[in-house]
Design a protein around this nucleic acid. Structure first.
Lengths: 193, 193
DNA sequence: AAAAACCGTTGACAAAAATCAACGATTCTC
DNA sequence: GAGAATCGTTGATTTTTGTCAACGGTTTTT
């Protein structure tokens, strides 16, 4: 159990068997069926999760009830409404399962205790945050600076697995486009080759 | 010297006078005249900086030579091309001074040594990253989910000082809009009141 | 196994944003 | 202090994107 969680951890910071056992005490497994919520808007995000199996998406609803996808998570990725998790305020994001999922949960309490007692955990979180920030920065830079077709190609290269696995209208939403526009962007790209 | 740097640090993690003195050894002051570069695309970002006085902007150039502003920094903010800084790869961002500036620089080497030797520094950086990530996440969420007028108002509230201090066409660029469109958005907002 | 929901694409049209040009009013620069 | 550059706005036009509707082909649900 928790294979991917510790694989990802060890890629950043090597852990001894004892350290792994220590951390395991703070983790909780959770299974989620397709379409089930991991988090609903208004609730406090009490845990962040790592995806062992399956796929999640995060989205916000606008005033007309339309969904706008803000993030995805596939195997090995970590997801949560970070603002809500850190500040213990109501979440603005909804997170639900695109496929049946196996998750590893770290509760806020577990997170705080690990942060206090285990320097390696803090280092891991720091590195995770740094990587997440760099990735989001790149996404944002592409959003404002690349024309649509280049942006789509850049995103494809940034998240190749994701784009194969997730319906295109969700990719469109993630990019801030209508499904029809993305479909036309794709057809323009294939015509120009 | 370094007043704002240590003020910001102490807001997160309280430092003793000895600890401040220790950190000071790793810092370098730098003055920058308006329009001077802090970083140019293609160079490796060897330092991140905290702004003691003045204002910076970061931008990328597209294939037609147009600028797209990716970030600003006012007094107390930290800025750099993080990806380039961490990975020691050529920067994709340009950073220059919008006003005459006084900066505090942390070189990559200083950063790495502090990270190794001083747990409080790592904690500070972790918190800085976390805050930066949450802020960027909010910006990204607004970008894809809010209609233009609401987005502008949300950004105004998110960065009130910035919006007073920086020319509007740069705000437009930061939001991924043309200057003319932002001007019209603003006039629509004032007319509806 | 049948019905329902979902998916991606296309066409016609409407709405939104970019572009180009011009203007007066600062503000910088020399 | 004069000339040049920058700034924000507005109008006219073009381009881009969203919206609405329809379709055939999946996949899900029951």
């Amino acid at each position: 159990m928790y294979e991917l969680f510790f694989q990802k951890f060890n890629e950043k910071i090597a852990l001894t068997a004892e350290e792994e056992a220590f951390i395991k005490q703070y983790l909780t497994p959770k299974k989620l069926r397709r379409k089930q919520y991991f988090l609903q808007e208004g609730d406090v995000c009490k845990s962040i999760c790592l995806v062992e199996k399956g796929a999640l998406r995060a989205y916000v609803l606008d005033e007309t009830g339309d969904e706008h996808i803000t993030a995805f998570a596939l195997e090995g990725w970590t997801l949560g409404d970070l603002y809500s998790f850190i500040k213990a305020e109501p979440a603005t994001w909804n997170i639900d399962a695109l496929e049946d999922c196996e998750l590893v949960l770290i509760s806020k309490q577990a997170h705080d205790e690990l942060m206090q007692t285990m320097p390696k955990y803090e280092t891991y979180i720091r590195m995770l945050m740094t990587d997440a920030y760099m990735a989001l920065q790149r996404r944002t830079t592409y959003m404002i600076s690349l024309p649509l077709e280049e942006r789509y190609l850049a995103f494809t290269q940034m998240y190749p697995t994701l784009f194969q696995r997730v319906p295109q209208h969700m990719i469109a939403s993630f990019m801030g486009l209508s499904a029809e526009t993305l479909s036309r962007v794709r057809s323009r790209i294939s015509n120009r080759k």
